[in-house]
């Protein structure tokens, strides 16, 4: 190939409009991390196995390592940085803290984004079995998952009681 094909990508990221010219082969995770400095979205495997890169695109969970930035142009993207309201943690973040749903923290941004997707999809009465099934694309090497499942269940109950919060 001679010459890179470059496209303008417009997105709403965590409530801010952004516009960038990127090579067409740019992955969403590279745009977020390298161009926008949002390094909370992690890259664990780069092969869509681990879920460390999960973000929301128009409210649905997506592995940012496995989608082109151009593919999601003109959508709304929410990353882990977009959850807290100042010092006030999102209920899912607070529940991970309360239940100690993390150790090294590497998987945590993806777990929290997937946890919110699970809560949004299944509501407050979500069972542990459903949470475990829905976490199949998110790998944690530290915790053994019990505390993560407990945190997601707890936050799902809280979220269903309050009005839909940020990052729906």
């Amino acid at each position: 190939m001679t010459g890179e094909s470059v496209s303008e990508v417009n997105l709403n990221v965590n409530g801010q409009r952004v516009s960038r010219d990127v090579e067409d082969r740019t992955l969403l995770v590279s745009l977020l991390r390298d161009d926008l400095g949002l390094t909370g979205t992690h890259i664990g495997c780069d092969t869509s196995q681990c879920g460390a890169c999960v973000v929301h695109v128009d409210g649905e969970p997506v592995k940012a390592c496995s989608v082109l930035a151009t593919q999601v142009a003109d959508t709304t993207v929410t990353t882990i940085e977009g959850l807290a309201d100042g010092d006030g943690l999102h209920p899912m973040q607070a529940a991970f803290k309360a239940h100690q749903g993390l150790q090294c923290g590497f998987c945590t941004p993806g777990m929290i984004m997937m946890g919110i997707a699970i809560a949004n999809r299944h509501g407050g009465a979500v069972s542990d079995a459903t949470i475990r099934h829905e976490l199949e694309g998110n790998i944690c090497r530290c915790t053994g998952y019990h505390a993560i499942v407990a945190a997601i269940g707890d936050a799902a109950r809280q979220m269903s009681q309050s009005a839909p919060l940020a990052a729906q």
């Binding site: 869509s48 879920g51 999960v54 695109v57 649905e60 969970p61 997506v62 592995k63 496995s66 989608v67 997937m114 997707a117 699970i118 999809r121 829905e134 976490l135 199949e136 694309g137 998110n138």
Partner: peptide, 9 residues
């Protein structure tokens, strides 16, 4: 099929 993120796309 796969996991929720795979099913989104």
């Amino acid at each position: 099929i796969g996991d929720p993120a795979v099913r989104t796309m």
